[in-house]
Amino acid sequence: MATADLTSGTISYQRKQTSASWLSQLFLLTRRNLVNIFRTPEALIPPIAISVFFLVIYQSTLGTAAGFIPGLSGKGYLGFILPLSIVSSSLAGAGIAAQNLVKDLENGYFDKLLLTPISRTAVVLGPILAGSLVLGLQALIVVGVGLLLGLDPATGLPGLLAVVGLSVLLGTGFAGFTVSAALGTGSAAATQSAGFLFFPLTFLTASFVPLELLGGWLKTAAMFNPITYVLGGMRSLMLTGWETSELWPAVAACLLLAVAMYGLAAYALRVRTRRK
């Protein structure tokens, strides 16, 4: 074991008992999580497949019948339904980063990270950011399929990039929620099902028709659902143009969700470490 020597070697070794800057901690942990996610690509395929499937089905079944909605028909409906497809794929994929975290918790690597002098916020944010970047990639793929189906967004390529940007932002909230579940339960199955808790949100909103056409309690529920505003912002980019009155609420809803879910995750970590 003592063939090589700690003190010899090419670098004259100086003791390194500091820690990386907060930003590099965050970068390093996010990168590690991303690399791990792409090492099990099979986990990435189902969410993307499901959302592409829904996009095609919605478009084929409702797209032709959508003439009854004022101002929406044919390709217009594709632009209307694409954001919903992106949001549901984000939900389906939100668990990916958290599943990696559960593995870290199980194999003890998470403790190894806690034993290094790094910030607890970076420990929580690393998997969240990696998760949201993956969701952005998914959105990119859904948008690509949309283009193949004949999507013609009102705001062109910049608008499409803005849609992807919004989905990264929204994904931060979703990933924050599943990361909280992972930290709170430490169980892969519980984390998996926690992702489904968000699913009703995609229906308690202006899923298939614009908000104005909803009525009664559903409309009230939709008003409190952040996804309504995200869909609204994305749809305005697809159908009408750069409307700040639609975009700001979308950004605000994403940020609000992200901050709340980060808070939840940080709390879950506190509880987890306090318990010991």
Partner: peptide
């Protein structure tokens, strides 16, 4: 910062390579 720890429950990520794990550890320590 000043302590090194090898726990009884070995905490390794099976999907990483030893070089990656050691490099990451070093970078986290600055």
């Amino acid at each position: 910062r000043i302590a090194g720890v090898a726990l009884q429950e070995i905490g390794l990520d099976p999907t990483m390579k030893s070089m990656e794990m050691l490099t990451l550890q070093g970078r986290l320590f600055g």
